[in-house]
């Protein structure tokens, strides 16, 4: 089997702070195979974005510390790569799109300028050829008046338009891995669906792998081949999308599914998960979810590890251990 596009092993990340280090990521293993669309789901604060940003070396230097773990992209250990090599990788073989299309583009440069910059940086296309490529990318994103859009400034465009432009830019140099961090969260629901479909189609068409980060299980379920569920800086369940969603093995996953408004009876109060994500300065000793878990029992004071609960399906919960034991 070829090298996975992205492989993260035992990653730990902490942020030094006033009342102690914030242990944001606490031993995450994750991989994305070629052509695969992988979802990373969890509440805000579960360190989905931090995991992805660390992988691409995008966290502001000095603000964080990677205390353990290895990250390899396309078979190469990121730690051994120079800054120049990383720059070549980012925007070339690896692209990333972000949550906030309204601010993710430079406000004082035209769309064209910003697109051409990426294209010329990572390919041999120059001048008109690069411009044609930019127009082609925009057309692929169903932007019809592409030529005209190139001359526009970001503030003149809608959020959905900007996100489509950003996706187009991300695909500029046929990336092998696209990291999409909540790309539709800031958009209207109707625009969301359209942008998602475009992203999905483009990924399938180019064969790019996608690591799709979202707090929205509904979006993830439509879109992903495989899912990782994160809680408090750990993966608590992983497996093929159908299995994880159809037969959740971790109470947290089950709670997330219950909280989906689509499944609720009309008129019934919306389900929610009581409590909040634990304080990561002093992470709980045992299972991080136990304070909010309705199945919590004595065993939960020690931490469960990810174990197989089915084919390619893993969960970190004592309930499953007991059942399978």
């Amino acid at each position: 089997m070829a090298d996975p596009v992205l492989k993260i092993d035992g990653l730990e990340v902490l942020f030094p702070g006033f009342s102690g280090d914030v242990h944001a990521v606490n031993g995450v293993d994750l991989d994305v195979q070629r052509g695969e669309i992988v979802g990373l789901v969890g509440e805000s604060g579960s360190a989905k974005s931090v995991t992805a940003m660390t992988a691409l070396g995008l966290l502001p230097p000095g603000a964080f510390r990677q205390s353990a773990g290895t990250i390899s992209i396309l078979g190469r250990d990121v730690a051994t790569m120079s800054e120049r090599e990383m720059n070549k990788l980012r925007g070339g073989d690896v692209a990333m799109i972000f949550q906030e299309p309204q601010t993710a583009l430079n406000p004082t440069k035209t769309i064209g300028k910003q697109m051409l910059r990426v294209i010329e940086l990572h390919s041999d296309l120059r001048g008109m050829a690069a411009r044609d490529r930019a127009i082609e990318l925009l057309k692929d994103m169903r932007i019809n008046d592409a030529e005209e859009i190139l001359g526009r400034y970001p503030f003149e465009l809608s959020g959905g338009m900007r996100q489509r432009i950003l996706i187009g830019m991300a695909f500029a140099c046929s990336p092998k891995l696209l990291v999409a961090d909540e790309p539709t969260t800031a958009l209207d629901v109707t625009v969301q669906r359209q942008v998602l479909q475009l992203l999905h189609a483009k990924a399938r068409q180019t064969g790019a792998s996608v690591l799709f980060i979202s707090h929205d299980l509904a979006v993830i379920s439509q879109f992903c081949d495989r899912i990782y569920v994160m809680y408090a800086g750990r993966v608590v369940e992983s497996g093929p999308a159908q299995k994880v969603l159809g037969n959740p093995q971790h109470p947290y996953t089950a709670a997330l599914i219950e909280a989906l408004p689509e499944d609720a009876d009309p008129g019934a109060p919306l389900a929610s998960i009581p409590g909040t994500v634990p304080n990561l300065v002093n992470p709980p000793k045992g299972c991080a979810f136990q304070a909010r878990c309705r199945h919590a029992h004595a065993a939960c004071d020690s931490r469960p590890v990810l174990t197989d609960v089915g084919s390619k399906h893993q969960a970190a919960c004592w309930l499953r251990e007991e059942i399978s034991a």
Binding site: N87, R90, G91, G92, A95, F98, T103, A104
Partner: peptide, 12 residues
């Protein structure tokens, strides 16, 4: 955020 985009685009 646009600085992050620029970094993600591989600008030095």
């Amino acid at each position: 955020d646009y600085i992050r985009t620029a970094k993600a685009n591989g600008l030095s």
